[in-house]
Structures are given as C-alpha cells and as structure tokens.
Design a protein around this nucleic acid. Sequence first.
DNA 1: CATATTACTTTTATAATGCAAGTGAAAATA
DNA 2: TATTTTCACTTGCATTATAAAAGTAATATG
Lengths: 147, 147
Amino acid sequence: MAKKKPDPRWRSGCPLNASVEMLGDRWSLLIIRDMMLRGSRTFKEFLASYERIATNILADRLRRLESYGIIAAQQDPSDGRRVIYVLTEKGIDLAPVLTEMVLWAAAHEETGNQALLQEIQKDKKKFIAGVRQRWSENTLRQLLIAR
Amino acid sequence: MAKKKPDPRWRSGCPLNASVEMLGDRWSLLIIRDMMLRGSRTFKEFLASYERIATNILADRLRRLESYGIIAAQQDPSDGRRVIYVLTEKGIDLAPVLTEMVLWAAAHEETGNQALLQEIQKDKKKFIAGVRQRWSENTLRQLLIAR
DNA sequence: CATATTACTTTTATAATGCAAGTGAAAATA
DNA sequence: TATTTTCACTTGCATTATAAAAGTAATATG
C-alpha cells in the first residue's frame, strides 16, 4: 500500500542500500535479536546483553529503530518509569534476515549457541513461523499484564 | 571443517554478532552486492557505484573483507596495475542474506530496481542458485581471460 | 521521607568516516 | 623513447560517530 518511487532519504534506490542504511551498524541487529529471540523489552534488559552496549548508543539506536518503524515504544501502564519496546510488523519481518545471518556465520566461523542453530537448521520456515507466533502472543500479553 | 569453540576475535559467541562484526557497516554489503549482482571486480568498478564510496574507505573495506576470507584479491596477469577481486565460497554464501535484505526493504520502503526484485520474488531459490552458478562460471573466465 | 530503580543525558576521549589531493607503478600513446 | 594516462591506492585534515563514565529527573518502594 505504501510504496511507489524511491525514497529520497536513501543514498540510492537500491533496496539493499536501504536495508544497510537502516541496519548497517554494529548494534541495531543485536537489539532486534534481543527482542526477537530473548524477549528483551526494556532499556535495562538490552543493557544486560553480553556484548555490552553503552547507554548513550543504546538510547540512540532505539530512537533510530523507532524512527524507521522497526520498533515501537510505549509507557508501561503499571510503572511510570518503564518504557516497553516492541517489534512492529516491519521488525518481525526481519526474522528471515537474522536467520540467514545466523546460518551464514555458523557455517563459516567458530560460534556458540548451538541450540538456536540446530533449531534453525532443522526447519528454517518453522523457526521463523515460531518467532512470528510467539511474538504476537507475547506482545499482547506484555502490553496488558503488569509485572 | 574449521569450526569448534567460539572465536575470541568476537565480542560474543553469538553467530549473529559475528555476522554483524564482519558486515555491520554502511559499505561492506554494498561491495558484495556489486560483486555478486553487478559483476564488479576492480577498485575502479566499485568506485563507479551509485552510492559513491570514498577511496580510502573502499581500500579499507576490501582489506577487511579479504582478512575475513569473504573476498580474495589477485593481480591481473594481463595488466600489472590491475587487482581483481573475487568472492570466495564464504562470500558467495552471503547470497541468501542479501536476498532477504532486499526482500525486506522492498516490502517496507519505497525502493527501485523492480527487475531484480521481481526475479527474486518469482523464485528465491532459483535466484540464489543462479547467482552461485553465474559466479562459478565468471570467476574462471575472469581469471583466465585478458580484457 | 529516604532510598532505589529506570531510562535516559552529558561530558570527554578516542576512533571512524568522508573529502580532496597526492603518489608510484604500469600501460598506453605520441 | 618520452610523455601522458590509468589504476590502485595513500595521506592529511575536518567532521562525525562511538565508547566509557558520571550525572539527572521521574517514579516507585520500604
């Protein structure tokens, strides 16, 4: 529905370039991974990730991802301090991208997380469908239930 | 065959993180795109790309990609000035990653290159197989034939 | 009311990027 | 053979991004 001529925001009309401009840095995809696979939803939870992002960079990336419509931010109704970040449809649609990047690195580098890997390798489509479903379930719950 | 415990080179053992550390910047994937889809092979050809990479950054990225084993550099036997860059197997294996990134951006942004897009959408597997085959054909030809 | 928690911002130092100009070797041209 | 051109870079410098550490405002908890 929304989609016509190349967006002047990008360096070029190439779709790969658009992806790279939105996601091509050392943190954005890791934040999306944390949301998609680890269920992270708050600033504090993102900070707890193993790669140790700095707080100012995290704040900047969350702002950027929101501006691209990949994630959405909402106040926690049960705690005025807390902001809950959720993936939008656009964000969830990154599941195949993340999946292929995981498979590629695992095939060519010495990496860990064998459990995730085997799940993906067993049935890629099923894995992506699972992400999608778990997310739609959780999103509702997360937004409605206080903790 | 080489693959065991997490590489200490990476910030974490997560395979997605390894991918991000190798490819997570604004130029690396575009260089690979130019090789994979446009058949670029030389410094000059990469420079001619629409996004206008600076020469020092291009030199740096080519060095990095080579150090990761994603591309290989070879002297042109018929012209001593010219260096020919080719994708390695590891580099060619990025085809599914690029494919998904193209599909994702095209689905959510206003991008161009409809021809490429329709080819991918018609049959994703066939497209990736085609890249792979054209590459193996071309690599041989490129390395043997002077121009 | 005092303390703790959460999501940031600010500051400062370091590193990466981008632009313009320059270099050296090899090849093409006069 | 001498000169010019091409190619793949490098260098210098200004701008921007990243990282680490400390600080802050709003809310919540005991």
